[in-house]
């Protein structure tokens, strides 16, 4: 049976160490972030008191990142399902994952540091290995925390991770759902997933990205409803009917 392992967080001193590196010269950033061994050591971590069986994250092909992301989302979120949202909005926790536990995965999946220089390199590392800001959006860009958060907002008790693949199928759908207010309205999210599942062809990319345009229009319409009515008090079925009406319009 798989052994549980302790989950750590980067200590204040460790965070200071990373910040100093990220404020330093791009050549140092490149050297440290493309190195095979992590530059943080055990003295830079503090025990969070959480333990679980952490999965090995997969990276099979550079061309099918979405599929790998979906698999990894399910693997990581199901392993860390007991994590509260409060714990999952902690910089120090995810830094341990990106800078130590999943260092090898980060090197493969977020390998852009090798090809970037100067400020672009700094921004790339800040975005994917660190957090580019203290907003919730930053957690959807960090290489590891994004996987947990994708799982968190697409998971539902009944169908478990069925919606995860719908959400991660296209980048446009993902960003629309996670970076807008509707991502905070569970009934609205469920209704959008239901429509996406029901009308796959309608939202499939056609000529001139027609699927993307249709999806954007759908969300715009939902947003418009949200400006006059409080979506939070509506049921999934009520919102689904609204969306159904939008997609049925000629």
């Amino acid at each position: 049976m798989a052994q549980n392992e302790k989950i750590y967080a980067v200590s204040f001193k460790g965070i200071e160490k990373i910040k100093t590196i990220l404020e330093g010269s791009p050549s140092d950033i490149k050297r440290l972030y493309t190195c095979k061994t992590p530059f943080l050591k055990s003295e830079d971590f503090v025990d969070t008191g959480i333990s679980c069986h952490l999965p090995n994250l997969v990276f099979t092909n550079k061309k099918s990142k979405a599929k790998d992301d979906e698999k990894n989302t399910i693997l990581l979120h199901s392993a860390l399902k007991s994590l509260t949202r409060r714990q999952a909005a902690s910089l120090s926790l995810w830094l341990w994952f990106t800078h130590f536990r999943y260092w090898d995965y980060m090197q493969m999946r977020w390998h852009g540091a090798k090809d970037k220089n100067g400020e672009k390199l700094r921004d790339y590392i800040k975005t994917h290995h660190f957090l580019f800001s203290s907003s919730s959006r930053a957690y959807f860009r960090n290489g590891i925390s994004r996987l947990w958060w994708y799982g968190e907002i697409s998971y539902e008790d009944k169908n478990q991770y069925l919606n995860t693949s719908l959400m991660l199928e296209k980048l446009d759908i993902t960003s629309t759902l996670v970076e807008r207010t509707i991502g905070r309205v569970p009934a609205a999210m469920e209704a959008v997933f239901a429509i996406l599942a029901k009308k796959k062809k309608y939202f499939a990319s056609g000529n001139n990205n027609s699927g993307r345009t249709r999806f954007r229009k759908l969300i715009k319409n939902l947003g418009w409803h949200g400006t006059k009515e409080l979506l939070d008090v509506k049921t999934k079925d009520e919102i689904e009917s609204l969306l159904d009406a939008c997609t049925s319009k000629k």
Binding site: R85, A89, S135, S136, V185, L230, D232, V233
Partner: peptide, 17 residues
């Protein structure tokens, strides 16, 4: 009509009425 207390944590995406 209903009056609701809206509590929201933007960082965690949690909202409650």
């Amino acid at each position: 009509a209903t009056c609701l207390l809206h509590i929201e944590s933007p960082l965690t995406g949690f909202r409650k009425y």
